[in-house]
């Protein structure tokens, strides 16, 4: 076989292969991009929801902390008053 014909045929085949590869890569890239975009979108939505939930939880925790400190204080105050009442009753009883 003539070298030139061999070379030209090889080049033509290589060019055709390159073009088909390029088309394949472009298609794969586009599919991958759309899939990754979709995954990213889902994750982002999840994160937004989680952040929202976090914000609600933080608010609740803030309220909890506030009431806890006050509640314990009040509870001990009630206990203290009850002890004082107990002492008063005991003194009166004697």
């Amino acid at each position: 076989m003539d070298f030139n014909i061999f070379l030209e045929t090889s080049i033509s085949i290589a060019i055709a292969a390159c073009i088909s590869c390029m088309i394949k890569i472009c298609t794969v890239t586009l599919n991958m991009k759309s899939k990754l975009d979709s995954d990213y979108f889902i994750l982002k939505n999840k994160l937004i929801l989680a952040k929202k939930e976090n914000s609600i939880l933080v608010n609740k925790v803030v309220l909890c902390n506030e009431i806890n400190s006050k509640l314990l204080q009040s509870f001990f105050e009630v206990v203290k008053q009850l002890l004082s009442l107990q002492k008063f009753i005991f003194e009166k009883g004697q």
């Binding site: 990213y40 994750l43 982002k44 999840k46 994160l47 989680a50 952040k51 939930e53 976090n54 939880l57 933080v58 609740k60 925790v61 909890c64």
Partner: peptide
């Protein structure tokens, strides 16, 4: 990065829920 942030927030949320 998103997953990490999500995991962190979810962990934080779980902690907050525990506290609550």
């Amino acid at each position: 990065e998103l997953r990490q942030a999500l995991v962190e927030i979810e962990t934080h949320n779980k902690l907050q829920e525990q506290r609550l």
